[in-house]
Design a binder for these strands. Structure first.
Length: 268
DNA sequence: CGCTAGTCCTGTCTGC
DNA sequence: TGCAGACAGGACTAGC
């Protein structure tokens, strides 16, 4: 569910716990653990030194050495809650109680997300593509990425090993911004289209971060508040509605098993 | 190697 | 009202 802007919004909410120590760890089911290099209980007594993000991963670095990696999959939430507030929910799988009167809560009904208890980030993150909002995501990189590829550009944008952090919403919105149809073979994009796509990806992601993400269904930020970017979506979830630019009906098709939304008139 | 389809899981909505 | 089926923001894999 949460893509780059949503995870980034959660990350910024988590700045508040920097320096806090873990008092207690509650793990309600172990099948959410994707990789375990240490016992979760080892986090007790350690302080949150740094909270960062890579693609759709949320990264907690504890002092002195332990790392907790969180991926929210489709339906995951990760939020701060007052320690005394009782949460009765069968989908809460993991809690870190902190010494500032709050607890970190991981909740995920579909359990497509997961947790990694690591000493090093390498085994999970080493294959990921560049961060689209960082300097190493250049027009040249995008151009080389698309060159000679027959696969639909939309499918390519969802590949985390090529670009980190785009999901179904922002892939569709970026392609609308660049006026490119999702099913176009990546290798068929012309120079001006690649330039528009490069700029479009950055603009859409940045605007969504400003709006604290898209609450289409389940997503909430680190304080359980909704985002606002759903009010600015141009195509995602707007099938059968009028295009905000030309008035034509937005279409929905299936591409590589995922739904794709676009305007036939605005996107070529 | 590149690509597609299937799989994991629960909740919600639609149509009969 | 009940029930079956489709679908949902993701990512891995087996197989062609």
């Amino acid at each position: 569910m949460p893509e780059l802007p949503e995870v980034e919004t959660i990350r910024s909410s988590m700045e508040a716990v920097k320096g806090c120590r873990a008092n207690a760890i509650e793990l309600f089911r172990t099948d959410i653990i994707r990789r375990q290099e240490y016992e979760p209980q080892e986090l007790i007594g350690q302080a949150v030194e740094k909270v960062s993000r890579r693609g759709k991963f949320l990264i907690f670095e504890f002092s002195p050495k332990n790392i907790l990696l969180v991926h929210l999959g489709m339906s995951g939430r990760f939020f701060l809650s007052p320690a005394a507030e009782e949460i009765r929910d069968k989908h809460v799988h993991f809690i870190v109680r902190l010494d500032n009167g709050y607890k970190l809560v991981y909740q995920d009904p579909r359990r497509f997300g997961g947790l990694w208890f690591l000493f090093s980030l390498d085994p999970v993150l080493s294959k990921m593509g560049p961060e689209p909002l960082e300097d190493d995501f250049t027009l040249t990189y995008l151009t080389n990425m698309c060159r000679n590829r027959k696969v639909a550009i939309k499918t390519l944008l969802l590949n985390q090993n090529l670009i980190a952090g785009l999901g179904n919403i922002y892939a569709d919105e970026s392609l609308f911004s660049a006026r490119i149809r999702p099913e176009r073979p990546a290798g068929s994009l012309e120079g001006r289209e690649l330039k528009a796509l490069h700029a479009g990806i950055r603009k859409v992601l940045q605007n969504s971060i400003t709006q604290r993400g898209t609450t289409f269904r389940d997503y909430r930020d680190g304080l359980k508040k909704e985002g606002h970017f759903q009010n600015y979506l141009q195509v995602y979830g707007r099938e059968n509605q009028a295009c905000k630019i030309c008035g034509c009906e937005i279409k929905k098709i299936r591409l590589g098993g995922r739904s794709s939304h676009f305007c036939e008139k605005c996107q070529k």
